[in-house]
Nucleic acid binder design. Structure first.
Lengths: 111, 111
DNA sequence: ACGGGTGGTTACCGGCGGGATACCGGCCGG
DNA sequence: CCGGCCGGTATCCCGCCGGTAACCACCCGT
């Protein structure tokens, strides 16, 4: 039923790593610079942000463009593919918000 | 923008662990026994399956019911909450299949 | 009595994801 | 010349996730 080469291993659905989902949502409104990403993602370190962005690039969800300077600007933006992911992600967000209480309940009563 | 107590930490969206997504899809048709889950999830060990199921229970997505015997049967089934998750998950699966080629391309051209 | 299936538990272990910290070159303003 | 912002890289470290292997009680059929 699920062979060893399972889709979920390649699929960026589990959108990748810990921060990938937030990064994508940060880029929803348009391209942003490195430091403009660090700010809203409270707590992320430069290294981890770089890692995550490189991962998103590898998966074709994000493009890195260097606007040669000086001053030099580096911007990260969604590719059409990345942009297309926003829809299903929104569905997931909606689900989460809709069932927030049940999720909290389950967690508490479980302990 | 994303405070420390970020939804994605509690949300089972990144459906949980490595196997959770497949388990849920396995239970789509109805409750299954422990061994009926092990079979289709090729390669999963008893321990890891137990872990994953306990996790899904804690999140209120799966119920464990022991039909007292003898013979004793243990069945795992989706809760209404778990069942409601099938919709957004289907959206994600659809997206993945739809963009399969682009994903492969991105991976290859990236190396 | 014994083997086999069911439904696990326990101990151990390696890899990797992610965080902290330090450092870096380039360019800017003062 | 000094400091600071930008966009990173290098290094170390720790925890957790997932896998392996061994073991377990209980029940069944022969």
């Amino acid at each position: 039923m699920f062979d060893p080469v399972c889709p979920s291993d390649l699929s960026p659905i589990r959108v990748g790593d810990k921060w990938a989902g937030m990064i994508i949502r940060c880029l929803e409104q348009g391209p942003r610079r490195f430091s403009e990403l660090r700010a809203p993602l409270r707590g992320i370190t430069a290294k981890v942000l770089t890692q995550s962005l490189r991962g998103l690039e590898r998966n074709g969800l994000v493009v890195r463009t260097v606007h040669a300077g000086p001053p030099r600007r580096v911007e990260y933006g969604l590719t059409p593919l990345g942009r297309s992911l926003l829809e299903p992600m929104a569905a997931l967000c909606a689900w989460t918000e809709e069932h927030w209480d049940e999720l909290l309940d389950a967690r508490e009563t479980a302990i």
